[in-house]
Every structure is written in structure tokens, then in C-alpha cells.
């Protein structure tokens, strides 16, 4: 609870209504101090969010300014339901979301090892794992585009060293999604490791010791102490991962065709994510109404995913 510096004067004796008004007038400055958030959110947050719903019911090239749109009712949503490319992009996005969650598993294992106290140079490892998140995702995509090269890329070269055949990572419909997922996992596992490590370090060591005294085994300790106490942190990272992975943009855009490409997504649109498709429809084809319907649909899907996760696994023990 925050401390109450302003006091609760004027409440007793006076009527409740007058007391509140008195408080409000006394509280002029704190209202001023928090007002920038509410004003800016109203303009740059709330208005766009509400307007997006309206735009999803119109047809509009956006060229003529407000008032030149045509009301089409649910037609955008009907079109969306029948749009194979939309479903494909959604499938690609969900595929990438599921696979890139591997980074959370890697992070949990690494954090557990680093926290065990048996490892030297902990700081060096931590910093090395963390470095990828510092680089911009566009720069990372540029780097990986060369690493994924079919004939001369380092990745295929390493595969050949262990006797595996190289593949056309970026040019084939089969491998583009694994390539995108690799970049995303590479970029985020270190960040999540550092988050989990901080979470692990906040668990009091006497809890472990008590459990050990009681004869608990290593997996038992992990299952019954570490995981439950880490659950809020894990929930946080999973929700972030849902929001991030379902709105993946830079990596699929750059790896599958580049930012100037007129048909993004690569061969067979196997690397087309929903956000890339949305961007393409809105800003290349100027279908602002249709793209708004997509953004509403994607919004609902993200909220649904987060909600389902939160209600099933993420909730704190009662």
C-alpha cells in the first residue's frame, strides 16, 4: 500500500460527498502529474483502438481522408473467413508461436544450471546469452540471411561437417519456418534466461535446504519448489511470448523476401505471418478496412490465447 501523505482530513463530520470534493480539490497536483498518461492514452491509444473496430466495417483506400469510406457491414469479416492466405498466415504464426516457445525451455534449463552454484564464469555466460537481444531484429535478420545461405552459408557448412545434407533454408516452403523460428529462439533464449535466473535467485535458499533435509530428490525439488515459486515469472514470459510471437514481423519480412518484396512470405507464402500479411494489405494495397478487420481478429486471438493460458496453467495457487 502506498502511504497516505495527504491525510484523510475532512472526511468525518462533513458529508461524504463534500468530503470527496474537498479531497479532489486538495489533490490538484497529483492529478496534474498523472494527467499526461491519460491524455496521451486517450489520443494515441484509446482513439485508435476504438476507431479500428469502426474501420473493420468499412471499405476505404484511405486516400480521401475521413468521410470517404463506405460502410460494408460484416463483409470484411466474411472475406476474411474465406481468405486462404489469411488462414495460411494464421497457421504460420501459430506454428511459429508453438515452436519458438522452445526458447523458454532452454532458458529454464540454463537458468537452473547457472543458479546451481557449480558454474564459474557465470557472468560471462549470462552476458553472452543476453547479447542477441541487444541487437536490432532487422540487423539480426540481415546477418542470418547470409548465415542461412544455401551454398555458402555457415549453417549448411556446419551441417556438412557432421554429415548432414544442407537445405535451402530461405528458398523452400519446408524450411523457411524453421529458419525464422531459429532466429527468434536465438534472439530470445538469453533474455529469458536472465529473467528466470533473477526469479530463481529470489527464492530463499533455506527452502531448498529444508527440502533437502527432508530427503527430497532433485526432480522433486524442481517440481514442488522451483516451479511453483517461479510460476509468476513464467506466466509473464509466456504471455510476452504469445503477444510477441503472434505479432512476429521483422524476421519473417526480412528472411522471406525482404522489406521491398511485393509478395512477402517467400515460396508458397510459407513464411507469411499475420502481421506481415496485414502490413502488406494495408500499406501496399491500401485495403485499410480489410486490414483493420485483420487487426481486430488478431487482437481477439491474442487475448484469447493469453486468457486460456492464464486460466489453465498460469494462475497462481489459491
Amino acid at each position: 500500500m502506498a502511504s497516505t501523505t495527504a491525510g484523510a482530513g475532512g472526511r468525518s463530520g462533513l458529508g461524504q460527498k463534500r468530503g470527496t470534493w474537498f479531497e479532489v480539490r486538495r489533490s490538484f497536483w497529483p492529478y496534474v502529474f498523472i494527467s499526461p498518461f491519460f491524455i496521451l492514452f486517450g489520443i494515441f491509444g484509446l482513439f485508435p483502438y476504438v476507431y479500428a473496430f469502426y474501420l473493420s466495417f468499412v471499405e476505404w483506400s484511405g486516400i480521401g481522408g475521413p468521410g470517404t469510406e463506405t460502410w460494408v457491414g460484416l463483409r470484411n469479416y466474411q472475406a476474411l473467413l474465406g481468405d486462404d492466405l489469411w488462414w495460411k498466415s494464421l497457421y504460420n504464426s501459430v506454428w511459429l508461436f508453438v515452436v519458438t516457445n522452445l526458447n523458454l525451455v532452454i532458458a529454464l534449463v540454463l537458468a537452473y544450471i547457472l543458479n546451481s552454484g557449480l558454474i564459474r564464469f557465470k557472468e560471462v555466460y549470462r552476458a553472452a546469452f543476453f547479447a542477441p537481444i541487444v541487437a536490432s531484429s532487422v540487423a539480426v535478420a540481415v546477418i542470418f540471411t547470409t548465415l542461412f545461405g544455401e551454398r555458402y552459408g555457415t549453417i549448411n557448412w556446419v551441417l556438412s561437417l557432421v554429415g548432414l545434407p544442407g537445405v535451402d533454408w530461405l528458398g523452400s516452403a519446408t524450411w523457411i519456418k524453421p529458419a525464422i523460428a531459429t532466429v527468434v529462439i536465438w534472439r530470445y533464449f538469453g533474455w529469458n534466461t536472465v529473467i528466470y535466473l533473477a526469479g530463481l535467485q529470489s527464492i530463499p535458499t533455506d527452502l531448498y535446504e529444508a527440502a533437502r533435509v527432508d530427503g527430497a530428490s532433485w526432480p522433486q525439488i524442481f517440481r514442488h519448489i522451483t516451479l511453483p515459486l517461479l510460476r509468476p515469472v513464467i506466466t509473464f514470459t509466456v504471455i510476452l511470448s504469445i503477444i510477441g510471437a503472434l505479432q512476429l514481423f521483422e524476421e519473417p519480412l526480412m528472411l522471406a523476401g525482404g522489406s521491398q518484396s511485393t509478395s512477402p512470405g517467400g515460396t508458397d507464402q510459407a513464411g507469411l505471418t499475420t502481421l506481415v500479411y496485414l502490413y502488406n494489405q494495408a500499406f501496399s494495397y491500401l485495403k485499410f478496412g480489410y486490414a483493420s478487420a485483420m487487426s481486430v481478429a488478431l487482437f481477439v486471438i491474442i487475448v484469447l490465447f493469453s486468457f486460456v493460458y492464464y486460466r489453465t496453467v498460469g494462475r497462481e495457487r489459491d
Binding site: 482513439f47 476507431y51 479500428a52 494495408a282
Partner: peptide, 15 residues
């Protein structure tokens, strides 16, 4: 904070 940013892209651009 829970609102995914994708929702506001197009209206924000118009704004």
C-alpha cells in the same frame, strides 16, 4: 498494457 499493439496500427497511421 494488456492491449496488443496491432489493433491500433491503421487508425494511428491515419491519425
Amino acid at each position: 498494457m494488456m492491449i496488443p499493439g496491432v489493433l491500433g496500427i491503421i487508425p494511428s497511421f491515419m491519425l
